[in-house]
Amino acid sequence: MSELDIGILALQGDVAENLMSTMEAMNELGIDGSVSQVKTPDQISAVDGLIIPGGESTMMGQLSITNGAMNSLKEKIESGIPVLGICAGMILLSKNSKDRVLGATKQPLLDVLDVEIERNSFGRQKDSFEAEVSLDAMDIPSFQGVFIRAPAVLRTGSGVETLGKFNEKIIAVKQGNILATSFHPELTRDVSLHKQFVKMVKDSKS
């Protein structure tokens, strides 16, 4: 058994990139841990921490209902294991999500993060952008934010801490064991956010 087992939800999206960033983060922290791809309820129930990667949130939501992953994800997160939701992952974690153009949709959500999300908040792919953001509450003063058809948080509930904003829109939040970002730390070489997440998982185990 390794010290920590972190799972990347591997139904769809940029799974391998998160796997590499998490392994690199463990390396830099000198933590002996393992990172694996998880798809099934059994695999999900075995991990100490979970990353829901970037991809298409509608697709991931539907598929996780089909194979029963939705319920085990929800149970596992409510039991208190740390979870990092990135872009589509942030949408999936939310209680409420609407599309900037289409408005309310019927997409399945995990309903654990008390925020309202606006999907495609900054526009379509041509308006995807890179910009420096700061997450001072996470001890990350400067991070190159890669925003791809990114969502933003419109409203936060009482237990939710805003970690970062871009142009007046909330782009990173924390609620207890749940961490979520609009941008993609796994697409850059900087693993400082993944390191903070690995520390959260380590702290939750001790």
Partner: peptide, 25 residues
């Protein structure tokens, strides 16, 4: 420049990154 922050669009990270989000789909 959006409110004194430099914003860059159309980089390879953004273009290729978009394709990475489609993986396994």
């Amino acid at each position: 420049n959006v409110e004194s922050v430099d914003v860059t669009k159309g980089t390879s990270t953004l273009k290729r990154g978009f394709a990475h989000m489609l993986k396994n789909g």
